[in-house]
Write a protein that binds this DNA or RNA. Structure first.
Length: 587
RNA sequence: GGCUCCUUAGCUCAACUGGAUAGAGCAACUGCCUUCUAAGCAGUAGGUUUCAGGUUCGAGUCCUGAAGGAGUCACCA
């Protein structure tokens, strides 16, 4: 708001001798006190050479005199509370409703950013942890777009390695040529089934060997199953036709399955990277780094980087036999991304279990003086835990993504039916509605908490549809939508009326939308958008409950209230869209 | 064991990055549908912000230590 800036300037002119005048800023007034903006004088008492109350009163009087838009001020201890007149707020509100881009920011203009997220393995279906990752990645990408960035959503698929060979081995041995079509099982689930079978057979073998008196590690070394699986991986790397064909076939099943899950979840990608195509990258960069003495070589020929000055360890970059490890590929992929897209920033949405890895990656890129190293950012998020602890695919303690979505939709259907407000909707319309609500509940549940925090999910307790939830926000939207249907709404209305507390609170909240979205973008946190929208919806409902809208006594009052509803509706829609949550017209 | 992160109401989370009397939802209890959708609104109750120190006008937020929890420290990814 322009006035805010003006007040800050005025105060800055009054307080001299300060190193950093930009420290003089206003904050919103605590709702328990009267006012719109508050200036805290405590830090500046020395400069003003006054007691707290005196200083605040002194500044208040000057501001009141110089800025006509200030209607009044009050002083509590060292807090100067400034109040704008309702007319000023109303004028500002009219500006906003006439601005089709209200909410959008431009701080990301002309900047390009890549958001890598999802990045699944192809040996098992997606689970709840992936859902959190996907929703976070998608939402952050959307938020950045809204802030003016050009965004590329990418997905690095881990399609090769020992894990997929495990599923392949088990399918070859026990599968009887089973396919998704013959078994009527979704492709990723079918491959996951063989991953579990592998684990069962392998464990059985180990136990047998141990029964013969071998230790755990001896048994693991002697395992025939593991040996055959390793041979499979070697054949794959040599390009063995039969193994490659099997690999392609099973991966294609998985991709079909993923595609369906992504679609249902409503996430998408602009660019896919496949590890089978990138795993050889990075070697040349490592070798160049060795030549420039950024890295060093051990006697066996392996190449390392010493990060002990950075409070990290030594890290292997290339094996003695010249093959690459995880970080080698990541160095290569980072380079590839930059070459292909020239992004200013490269965001990796990856769980916090990889904090160390990404710290190392960034330091290495810096040491190599890569121009894009500064833009590498690990968006580290907390794991989703169950009451029983961590989710483990092999032990079957995972909450499957497809199952969970299906359950959420079923619950939404049940609740919708119980409320009985959807008469007249066709079967197809109901199906869409249930999906919107069920997924709305799930998405909001996962996105409303700070990404960095770990998240507890109790499968016994179903996700709520009341209170601080997705359906509550959707409901508020639907309610406004039905209220406004067939109403004439005008941007231009006479401002000659009193604004009551519910109207004022809602009006102010609506104006804060762009700032919130910018904050969410800068801190990569969809939770900030979620919490804001919840505040907004709550505030709207209070307003709605206590103020007749269609039957307002004054025509300009009615016009104002309708405009408030319309603007709230717009912010809700755009905000929920940033979270990937749909807004049903009725529910 | 080294390093990193977490601990706020019974439960799940907020708290504008150091500001005023720490706020919501769920669960419990009490009211409000013959008026714009009750997936709503209003209210009651619930707190030594894990503990002990420190920094200052002021600390849930910063620094030190302790307790409890998680992650990581692979020639796995």
């Amino acid at each position: 708001m322009k006035v805010k800036r003006l007040i800050e300037k005025t105060i800055q002119n009054q307080i001299g001798g300060i190193e950093d005048p930009s420290k003089i800023t206003l904050e919103p007034t605590n709702p328990k006190f009267e006012g719109d903006f508050t200036f805290v004088v405590f830090p500046f008492l020395k400069h003003l050479k006054k007691k707290p109350e005196e200083a605040a009163t002194f500044l208040g009087e000057i501001i009141y005199k110089e800025i006509p838009k200030i209607e009044s001020f009050n002083v509590v201890k060292g807090f100067l509370n400034l109040k704008l007149s309702d007319q000023v707020w109303l004028e500002y509100f009219q500006e906003i409703i006439k601005d089709p881009y209200h909410g959008r920011n431009l701080y990301g203009k002309n900047k390009k950013v890549m958001v890598e997220y999802s990045s699944p393995n192809t040996n098992k279906p997606l689970h709840l942890g992936h859902i959190r990752n996907n929703l976070l990645g998608y939402s952050i990408a959307e938020i950045l777009k809204y802030n003016g960035f050009k965004v590329i959503k990418s997905n690095l698929i881990n399609d090769r390695g020992i894990h997929i060979c495990k599923s392949m081995w088990a399918w070859q041995k026990t599968g009887n040529q089973e396919t998704p079509i013959s078994s009527q099982i979704k492709g990723d689930h079918l491959v996951g089934k063989y991953y579990v079978i592998f684990d069962k057979l392998y464990k059985g073998e180990i136990n047998e060997l141990k029964a013969q008196g071998l230790s755990q590690s001896e048994a693991e070394k002697k395992s025939k199953i593991m040996r055959e699986t390793r041979e499979m991986l070697q054949k794959w790397e040599r390009g063995d036709e039969e193994i490659r064909a099997l690999w392609s076939k099973m991966n294609s099943w998985v991709y079909e399955g993923f595609k369906e899950t992504y679609q249902k979840l409503g996430v998408d990608f602009d660019k896919f990277y496949y590890e089978s195509e990138t795993y050889l990258l990075g070697k040349e960069i490592v070798k160049a780094g060795l030549n420039n003495a950024v890295f060093f070589q051990k006697e066996d020929g392996s190449i390392w980087v010493d990060l002990q000055n950075e409070n990290l360890d030594q890290k292997l970059l290339l094996r003695a036999d010249g093959t690459s490890v995880y970080i080698t590929q990541d160095i290569g992929t980072a380079d590839l991304k930059y070459k292909e897209f020239k992004v200013d920033q490269s965001i990796y949405v990856v769980g916090n279990e990889q904090d160390y890895h990404f710290k190392v990656l960034k330091v290495i890129l810096e040491k190599l003086k890569k121009p894009y190293s500064k833009g590498v950012f690990h968006l580290s998020y907390g794991m989703v835990d169950l009451p029983s602890g961590k989710m483990k695919s092999r032990e079957g303690t995972v909450v499957d993504a497809d199952d969970l979505m299906r359950e959420m939709i079923a619950t939404a259907a049940k609740q919708t039916q119980e409320l009985g407000k959807t008469n007249g909707l066709s079967f197809e319309e109901l199906e869409v509605l249930h999906k919107q609500i069920g997924l709305g509940a799930l998405k909001y549940f996962l996105l409303k908490v700070d990404p960095q925090k770990r998240l507890l999910f109790d499968p016994e307790e179903s996700i709520d549809f009341h209170g601080n939830t997705g359906p509550f926000l959707q409901y508020t939207f639907a309610r406004i939508n039905s209220l406004l249907s067939e109403q004439e709404i005008t941007d231009d209305f006479d401002l000659n009326f009193e604004v009551n507390i519910e109207e004022k609170n809602l009006l102010v909240l609506v104006t804060e939308f762009p700032a919130k979205v910018q904050e969410a973008g800068q801190s990569f946190s969809p939770a900030l958008v979620s919490n804001y929208l919840y505040e907004l919806a709550k505030c709207y409902n209070r307003f709605y409950q206590n103020n007749p809208i269609l039957k307002s006594n004054l025509p300009q009052k009615k016009a104002f209230r309708l405009a408030l509803c319309k603007e709230t509706k717009r912010v809700l829609k755009e905000g929920l869209c940033l979270l990937g949550i749909d807004t049903p017209k009725r529910m």
